[in-house]
Design a binder for these strands. Structure first.
Length: 566
RNA sequence: GCCCCCGUAGCUCAGCCCGGAUAGAGCAGCGGGUUUCUAACCCGUUGGUCGUAGGUUCAAAUCCUGCCGGGGGUACCA
């Protein structure tokens, strides 16, 4: 990692030496034994320059001697150069942290669109839906926070044969109007349909026919459809609220109903779409693309998700003129997006940057999930269980817990744990869901971060901190090792944010916050803050204020919430 | 068959894109720490042929190739 300080050193050095490359590739090593900054570039260029690595490293050290912010440097091992900065220089790094403690002003440029969550209407959210929902929200949060004009879009599965099935089920076995049904009762009807289907295959045709009538505009069915959507949205919004997710544009697939025909025409006219087997409209890709043929319209002339995705892209470009569109969808759909992105290029559309932000699938220790059979692990169930477990722990601890609202605290901890479970790991990996690790409340977990925040706030309250981070007149005397290590982590925050955003990897931020907590807690344990003499006390309170601010700022980008005490 | 992803400590995972110093955490295990600002914490310790075999390199968990094991995708589901 290269940061501002290293860049300034590099700039300084490059004036002395023409081999600019010699001084790049600084890293921030763990601990302090290898300095604050380190570089192996002497090793790398030894052969090229024809001088031994150690000699080059020594040469670099000689130059570093003259750099004001460098306290000392050394040649280590086969030719590493390790650099220790002066306490002044280290503390000065906090200047660069200051600006990112506030949301950046939104820049006046073409927007970035992030699509995520993608729930199905008429079914409750399963635990696996949390992946796209939370990963997408935190990526959108990062963009927005860092000053990008950000548009958050949902893409509901609110159209398709499932409505035919549901309508048939309701007609035969329903006991009350849709409006009065809960989302779980709708699911029960859906499951029953599939049960009964085994004995009565005619149900299938009935469902298809019903959906066809819905598509044709049957008024009664349209009203039914609207009610189903309303019931689902209601349940959905309650969950989004608990997860601190807000998606400003809740678009359903049905919205694109009238936009597909012109695109199909356009594709056929341009020769990009062709007639395939059984009357389907397909797109065949150039051989060198090595992509299998994709169906664009079914043989019975019904549309499919590919068709709606064309419409969705067209619609968003026309409405927002974005400079990038991101799709947070699990990696099972990688091929689909490859085909989709290639196809729209073949249509000759003027396109923004299109990217599929893929993530791994959620797996389960025991049971496999299938909505049709009804053995779905519902997100709400998991959140409720997490809440209940947190509540139990709070009760067990009794007076040791500092809170005047145990319910709210239990919610923060419980829901936070589940979110943290998703966001603390590399999104590309599959996630194994098990209650133990998802609902863990110590170690690398949401409550640990929340507790550390509460702790830092408590110190700041007692230290009568006035809410400002004043960097002038900070004492540099007697910087302890734990302060040193804490500072090193603090000053990386701006880069972490940028890295998490640009790589679309929220776990970089999560893991950073965890490390920050570890450093702060070590510091807290070994160095008195409030009891230390005046010049130290001021500095330590300042460090604490940075910790507190970064934890809250960073954590909220990850959909976490923080108690002032716990 | 072909394509994509994954394989790191008993368990859950960082690190891999962009190669560097003894491979890091958390949980579980063991041993310590509270006259001090919140012990949901901290400190120490046990535990790893980084799936496997080769290759490239001064240097490989990291890059390349083969193989094994797991997952996903592969024309009318999304």
């Amino acid at each position: 990692m290269v940061h501002t300080l290293t860049q300034s050193i590099t700039a300084f050095l490059s004036k002395q030496y023409s081999t600019h490359d010699l001084f790049v590739q600084w890293t921030v090593p763990d601990g302090l034994s290898h300095g604050h900054l380190s570089t192996p570039s002497a090793l790398r260029f030894a052969k090229e320059v024809g001088v031994s690595p150690k000699e080059i490293a020594q040469m670099m050290c000689d130059v570093l001697q003259g750099v004001p912010c460098v306290e000392r440097s050394e040649v280590a091992g086969p030719g590493f150069v390790n650099v220790w900065l002066t306490p002044e220089a280290l503390l000065a790094q906090l200047e660069d942290v200051l600006p990112v403690l506030q949301p950046q002003k939104t820049r006046d440029e073409d927007p970035v669109i992030v699509e995520y969550s993608q729930p199905n209407i008429a079914k409750p959210l399963g635990i696996h839906h949390i992946m796209s929902t939370i990963i997408g929200q935190s990526i959108a949060n990062l963009y927005q926070y860092l000053g990008y004009n950000t548009i958050r879009v949902n893409h509901f599965g609110d159209w398709g044969t499932q409505f035919g099935k549901l309508a048939v089920a309701l007609e035969r076995w329903g006991e009350k109007p849709v409006k009065d049904c809960s989302i779980d009762e709708l699911l029960a009807l859906y499951v029953r349909f599939h049960d009964e289907l085994e004995n009565d295959p005619t149900l299938h045709d009935a469902a298809r026919d019903t959906f066809r009538r819905l598509e044709e505009g049957d008024q009664q069915l349209r009203a039914f459809w609207k009610d189903v959507v309303a019931v689902t949205m209601d349940a959905l919004n309650r969950l989004y609220e608990r997860l601190h997710v807000s998606i400003e544009h809740p678009h359903g697939e049905s919205m694109y109903e009238d936009m597909m025909a012109p695109i199909l025409e356009e594709g056929l006219r341009k020769g990009v779409f062709t007639k395939g087997e059984k009357g389907a409209v397909v797109i065949e890709f150039p051989e060198e693309m090595k992509l299998p043929t994709a169906v664009v319209q079914k043989g019975d002339s019904a549309t499919i998700y590919m068709t709606r995705d064309f419409a969705q892209i067209r619609y968003r470009i026309d409405r927002w003129h974005p400079h990038a569109m991101y799709y947070v969808v699990d990696h099972a759909q990688s091929l689909h997006f490859q085909q989709l992105f290639t196809a729209v290029k073949m249509l000759g559309w003027e396109l923004p940057h299109l990217e599929h932000i893929a993530f791994g699938r959620m797996r389960f220790r025991e049971k496999s999930m299938s909505t049709r059979k009804g053995n779905i692990l519902k997100l709400e169930e998991v959140l409720d269980e997490a809440h209940a477990r947190a509540k139990r722990i709070i009760e067990e601890r009794g007076d040791a817990v500092q809170t005047d609202d145990p319910e709210a605290l239990a919610e923060m901890m419980g829901v936070g744990s589940v979110i943290y479970g998703v966001l603390s790991q590399n999104r590309k990996q599959d996630v194994t869901f098990d209650w133990g690790s998802f609902l863990s409340f110590d170690g690398n977990s949401a409550p640990y971060v929340q507790y550390t925040y509460a702790r830092s706030r408590s110190v700041l309250r007692k230290g009568k901190w006035n809410g400002e981070h004043v960097l002038s007149n900070v004492s540099t005397a007697d910087l302890s090792e734990t302060e040193h290590l804490l500072l090193k982590v603090l000053m990386q925050f701006p880069h972490i944010l940028e890295e998490a955003r640009s790589s679309h990897m929220p776990h970089i931020l999560t893991n950073y916050l965890f490390e920050l907590c570890q450093r702060f807690n070590a510091f807290y344990n070994s160095d008195p803050i409030l009891q230390s003499p005046p010049p130290l006390k001021g500095r330590r309170l300042l460090l604490t204020s940075f910790v507190s601010q970064i934890l809250k700022t960073g954590g909220e980008l990850l959909c976490l919430r923080f108690p002032e005490s716990m």
